[in-house]
Structure formats: structure tokens, C-alpha cells
Amino acid sequence: MKAPAFDYARPASLAEVFDLLDRHGDEAKLLAGGQTLMATLNMRLSQPGILIDITTLNEPALTGIRSDGATLSIGALVKHREIERSAPVAEQVPLLAQAVPHVAHIAIRNAGTFGGSVAFADPAAEYPACLVALDATIVLVSRAGERKVPARDFFKALYETDLQPGELVARGEFVAQKPGYRSVFMELARRHGDYAIVGVAANGKVAGGVLSDISLAYLGVGGIPVLARQAMAVLEGQAYSTELVGAAQRALANDLDPAADLYSSGATKMHLARVLTGRALAALAEGA
């Protein structure tokens, strides 16, 4: 299990990155932490001509967690562990803070990056579902400049995103949690740190028991993180009740069509998505 031969570059600036991408085209792969890429290289599932290591780039556009109070941005090169330890993230993007501990294990979270996870777009990963639930914005950068894409439009199909040749993920932008809003992240994984069978990222407003602006995004149920628009519509403006939860769970039939994985059939995933929906809504309503 040794990786195939490839070249390696550690550019010092974005401009150099763009040069390398231009020069090598499809032969190039960005190394942005490599916690998935390296495994696929060792298994020879991927044979790039060159790895462009961007992890040490010192570009403000891609680094750091910044907040102006209204918007919090997370640079592509921010490591999972930094997000986990970030007080501003915990305060302003609590959904993400709840999700990070589910990302693999600490040694992986010390190396894996936010941008790497977003760009890889694994439908079973935690961040994409959170980004979709929060209607976050993904900022992409190329030689032509920056381009903003709503997360809900970014994930196209299995491992396919809106990223264009010569473009990389620069950062994610999140609207800081507004008063009255709550977040709940839940997933069902058979072992701690595994990819979940199914998971839900939930966010929304709860006032006097009435739910509004609820968003529910699911991971592990398809090629991309899935926003459950029908279930969300059922919930809009309604008082929390077991009947309401039941209606939302039934509505999921129109939102999700999960395919089987190694251990769980689509039907099981659907059932578990409904169970998680009930639990997530209860937690939202109860402020747990």
C-alpha cells in the first residue's frame, strides 16, 4: 500500500497555486490536509501527477476564523481542531461546533481542513450538511478573483461540486446565529468517529413553542447533503407537537430517497432519518 509516484509543490502564494494549476491541469491535486486524499493515494485509487500542498499558504483569504458580529468566516485552511476549539464558532455557529467532534478522531482533526472537507464533498461528511442547513456561503477563489456560491447550490452530485478548473475553496461564510434560533446536530454512527449511517443538521427559530425558519439537512442519505424542503414546509409557523413531528417525518418521504450503504438499506436509512428528525425537533423545541 504505497502511493504511486507524484511530484510535490508547496507554493508560497495563491498566484503560485494558480500557476501550478494552469500548468498541470487535471494532473494536479490540491493537498489541503490530505486526510482523505492520502488514504486514496496509499490505496492507489488516485494517481495525480503533482500534489500542490496549500496547507502552509499564508493567504488571509484562506486562513483564520474571523467574525464581524454579523458574519463568521472560516478559512479553507483552518483545521477541524481549530474549529472545535474556537469560542466564536461555538457562540455564532453552534451547529458547526456540535458537528465537529463527530469528524473522525483528534489526530485527523489536527490535520484535516475545513476547505478540504467542503471541496471533497463527501455526502456522509458533517460540514456539507451543516453548510446546507445554515444556508452558508462558500467563497471560491481563482485567478479571476472571488466567487460566492450558496452552499445549497455548491454540492451538485456525488463528489461533484460547483468548483471550476483553476478554482479552490477560500472560505465559508456563516450568518451569526440570530436571537431565538437554535441548532441541533445529531448523527447515528455505529462507532464513534465513523461516517454516520445518517445524520441531521437542524437549525431554526423557536419562540413560544412555535417553530419557524426551520432547516433540516441530512447527511448519509444520498449523493449530496439533502435539504428536506417538504418537511421544513410542514413545520413552518407551527407549534411543536408530536403530531407535527409525525407530519414532518411523513413528509420526509418526499425529500429523501436514501440508497443503501454496506450495512443499512435505504429503508433503514429512511427510518433512522425519521427517528433523528423527531429527536432533533424535540431538542430544538426543548432547547436541549
Binding site: 488514504a39 490505496m43 455505529r190 462507532r191 464513534h192 468517529g193 465513523d194 461516517y195 454496506l262
Partner: peptide, 27 residues
């Protein structure tokens, strides 16, 4: 947790440590 899964044509489906689930400390 553990089971070596095979397809009908004899391909092992979970031949990696990511897919063949050994017991870890957490559970």
C-alpha cells in the same frame, strides 16, 4: 460489528479498516 461481506460474484465489499468494523474503545 464484524463481518466480511461479499458480493454475489465473490468480491469482498468491506476489505478496509474503514469498512470492516472492529471494536474501538468508545463502544
Amino acid at each position: 460489528f464484524e463481518e466480511c461481506l461479499y458480493s454475489a460474484d465473490g468480491q469482498m465489499l468491506n476489505g478496509s479498516m474503514a469498512d470492516y468494523l472492529v471494536p474501538m474503545a468508545g463502544e
